Simulated scan of single mutants.
Amino acid sequence: MPAMTEEALLLDDLSATGADFHRRGWSLATSSNFSVRVGDDPLELMITKSGKDKGRLGREDYVRVGVDGRPTESGAAKSSAETMLHVVLADAAGAGSVLHTHSVWDAATGERGLEAGGVEIAGYEMLKGLDGIATHDTAKWIDVFPNTQDIPRLAEEVRARLADPQRPMQHGFLIHRHGLYAWGADIAAARRHIEAFQYLFECEARRLAACS
């Protein structure tokens, strides 16, 4: 049997991640989308095809796209409607992988942060699950963007926040009543960021409910 290619192994890892997120209730029905960088010059991503059950992904459920967000092969199946968000995160943030979830905690946290444009979470040990954070004694700001069907415009808003010289966006962001986008240097880092955010969002939601 021939050895599997590196790209095939990456797709298998993404598919296993999708099955895990589906089991946890973070990527139900056909929600969510996942990508991994497979080329740098030019930039290329493998991203989930539109409308796929993320709990049952196989290697055939991904499409290769370029820096313009379009499939690199003629006649290829349609990729996720939110492909340009993945492209911008790979291009402007250097992401090796981007993962997007639709959990209850994503929706609850986004609801709370819409008016202020984000939410701040501080003091949790789990903050150390995010790259570059070495202590619980810190505060993390998570941007919340209004939901929209105009993905190209949203992608440019995300690009601008990534380039903010004062407080550039890192690790992840929320879309109101939609879900969480998180990224990392590779699939493992992006998955760790998703898991850390899900824990933090649930803790904050439960804390606020107990205090109300």
Rank of each mutant, 00 (worst) to 15 (best):
Glu156Phe: 05
Asp41His: 10
Arg24Gln: 12
Pro152Leu: 03
His136Asp: 08
Val87Pro: 04
Gln166Glu: 15
Asn147Gln: 09
Asp40Val: 00
Gly25Thr: 13
Ser27Tyr: 00
His178Thr: 06
Ala92Phe: 06
Arg37Ile: 10
Gly51Cys: 01
Leu10Lys: 15
Thr30Cys: 11
Ala205Thr: 03
Arg23Gln: 11
Arg153Thr: 03
Leu174Glu: 12
Asp40Leu: 09
Asp53Cys: 07
Ala160Ile: 10
Ala155Asn: 01
Glu115Pro: 04
Arg70Thr: 13
His100Lys: 08
Gly113Cys: 07
Phe34Met: 11
Gly18Thr: 07
Asp131Glu: 14
Ala185Leu: 04
Lys49Tyr: 14
Ile47Asp: 04
Leu85Val: 08
Ser79Asn: 07
Arg64Pro: 11
Gly94Val: 04
Glu44Leu: 06
Thr17Phe: 12
Asp41Pro: 05
Leu99Asp: 00
Glu120Ile: 10
Ala108Cys: 12
Arg59Val: 05
Trp183Gln: 02
Glu60Phe: 02
Arg153Gln: 14
Ile47Asn: 01
Arg153Tyr: 04
Gly55Thr: 03
Gly123Ser: 12
Gly118Glu: 11
Val38His: 03
Ala29His: 13
Asp137Lys: 03
Ala196Met: 05
Lys140Ser: 06
Pro168Ser: 00
Asp12Val: 04
Ala93Val: 04
Ile175Trp: 02
Ala93Trp: 09
Ala160Val: 07
Leu180Thr: 13
Pro2Phe: 01
Ala108Met: 14
Val87Asp: 02
Ala209Phe: 13
Ala196Lys: 01
Met126Asp: 07
Met1Glu: 02
Asp68Leu: 15
Ala209Tyr: 12
Thr72Asn: 05
Asp13Gln: 15
Asp20Trp: 13
Ser97Asp: 05
Leu10Tyr: 09
Asn147Asp: 13
Ala160Lys: 13
Pro168Phe: 00
Ala210Leu: 14
Gly123His: 09
Leu174Phe: 07
Asp91Gln: 15
Glu120Ala: 09
Glu111His: 14
Asp164Thr: 08
Gly184Met: 01
Gly179Ala: 03
Gly184Leu: 01
Ala134Trp: 13
Ser212Asp: 12
Gly75Ile: 10
Ala189Gly: 05
Leu208Thr: 07
Lys128Leu: 03
Leu9Ala: 14
Gln198Lys: 01
Ser212Leu: 11
Asp40Lys: 03
Trp26Glu: 09
Ala92Gly: 05
Ile187Phe: 01
Asp131His: 11
Leu154Gln: 05
Gly129Thr: 07
Leu99Gln: 07
Asp68Cys: 12
Asp106Gly: 03
Ala160Met: 10
Arg153Asn: 05
Ser97Ala: 12
Arg70Val: 13
Gly96Lys: 03
Gly117Trp: 05
Lys54Met: 08
Ser50Pro: 10
Trp141Arg: 15
Ala3Leu: 11
Val63Ile: 07
Arg64Cys: 04
Ser31Phe: 14
Ser80Val: 11
Glu120Thr: 15
Arg207Trp: 08
Asn147Lys: 04
Tyr124Glu: 10
Cys211Pro: 03
Glu202Leu: 09
Met46Leu: 15
Arg56Asp: 15
Asp12Ala: 06
Ile142Pro: 08
His171Leu: 04
Gly129Phe: 03
Thr109Met: 04
Asp53Asn: 11
Ala29Ile: 05
Leu10His: 15
Arg153His: 11
Gly25Val: 11
Ala210Val: 14
Ala93Met: 02
Trp141Asn: 08
